[in-house]
C-alpha cells in the first residue's frame, strides 16, 4: 500500500483532474489521445462528455475509473491523489468509491442477476446477509426485483443495462462512470436508465456519462464536448441539485 497522500479538494469536489494526457506508443509515431484534459465533478452532479468516435471519451473515462494510467497530469478522487497509489490501493479505490457501467452492458453471462450484483460486494467484504439486502435494494431501484434469479444471458437489452446500473450502484459508490449507457437501448429504455441516474444523483452521487446522444446529454447538469483530445468549455444545461462544495 502507498503511504497516505495529501488530500486536495478545496471546493469539496469528488473529482479534480488536471491536464490529463494520454499517449499510446505506435511504431510510426505516438498517438496522443488526450491533450491536457481538466475536469471536475461535485457530489450530486451529472456530467456528460460528448464527442465523435475516437475523440478519447472512453479513454478519459477509463483514466477517471483508474482502469488506465495517464501519461501525464494529476487526478484527485475525493481529495486523494489516486495516481500515486499502487495497483492494490487503486483496486480498493475502484471497489469502494467507483461504479462502472460499460458500453456493451457487460454482465457475467453464466451467472444470475443476483450473482452479477454479488461480486462487487464479495470483493468489498460485505457479509452475506447485508449483500442480499443491498442487492434487493439496488434491483428495486431499477425495477428489476423480480429478476433476481434470472440468468444474465436471458435478459433483454434494456434489462441487461438496468442490471449493469444496479451493479454500479450496489456498492454505494461516490462516483458512477457510465460509458454509453444508453447506446444499445431504444429511446424509452435509454430515458428510463437516465431516470435512474437522476434518482441516484439526487442522493449525492456524482455521475459522468459518456454519450453520443444530445438528448441524453441534455439531461445532465454540464456537458463537456471532447474534440481532438481536448475538452471544450462546459456549459450548464439544466438546473441541478449539485451539493455545495
Amino acid at each position: 500500500m502507498s503511504s497516505p497522500q495529501p488530500r486536495y479538494n478545496p471546493d469539496g469536489s469528488l473529482i479534480q483532474a488536471r491536464q490529463l494526457t494520454m499517449t499510446y506508443p505506435n511504431g510510426a509515431g505516438d498517438i496522443q489521445v488526450l491533450r491536457g484534459v481538466s475536469v471536475s465533478l461535485h457530489p450530486g452532479e451529472m456530467l456528460a462528455i460528448m464527442g465523435p468516435s475516437g475523440s478519447g471519451k472512453s479513454t478519459l473515462l477509463y483514466i477517471l475509473g483508474l482502469l488506465l494510467k495517464p501519461t501525464g497530469g494529476s487526478y484527485w478522487l475525493a481529495g486523494e491523489d489516486v495516481l500515486a497509489l499502487d495497483r492494490r490501493a487503486q483496486a480498493l479505490c475502484r471497489r469502494e468509491r467507483l461504479g462502472f457501467v460499460f458500453q456493451t452492458c457487460d454482465l457475467l453471462e453464466n451467472s444470475t442477476v443476483y450473482e452479477n450484483l454479488e461480486f462487487p460486494l464479495i470483493y468489498a467484504g460485505v457479509s452475506p446477509r447485508e449483500r442480499r439486502e443491498r442487492i434487493l435494494m439496488a434491483l428495486e431501484q431499477v425495477n428489476l426485483g423480480h429478476r433476481l434469479r434470472h440468468a444474465a444471458n436471458r435478459l433483454s437489452g434494456g434489462e441487461r443495462q438496468r442490471v449493469a446500473v444496479a451493479r454500479a450502484l450496489v456498492n454505494r459508490p461516490q462516483v458512477i462512470l457510465a460509458d454509453e449507457p444508453t447506446g444499445q437501448l431504444d429511446h424509452r429504455q435509454g430515458h428510463l436508465v437516465m431516470d435512474h441516474f437522476e434518482a441516484v444523483a439526487e442522493r449525492g452521487t456524482g455521475i459522468i456519462v459518456v454519450t453520443h446522444d444530445p438528448e441524453i446529454a441534455a439531461r445532465c447538469h454540464r456537458i463537456y464536448p471532447l474534440r481532438d483530445g481536448r475538452l471544450e468549455m462546459a456549459a450548464p444545461r439544466r438546473e441541478g441539485r449539485v451539493a455545495d462544495g
Binding site: A91, L92, R94, F100, L108
Partner: peptide, 16 residues
C-alpha cells in the same frame, strides 16, 4: 478474459 476485466473493474485485486 472479459470476465476478468469486468471483475477487476468491480474492484477485484490481482490476488482475488
Amino acid at each position: 478474459t472479459r470476465e476478468i476485466g469486468l471483475k477487476k473493474a468491480m474492484g477485484a485485486e490481482d490476488g482475488d
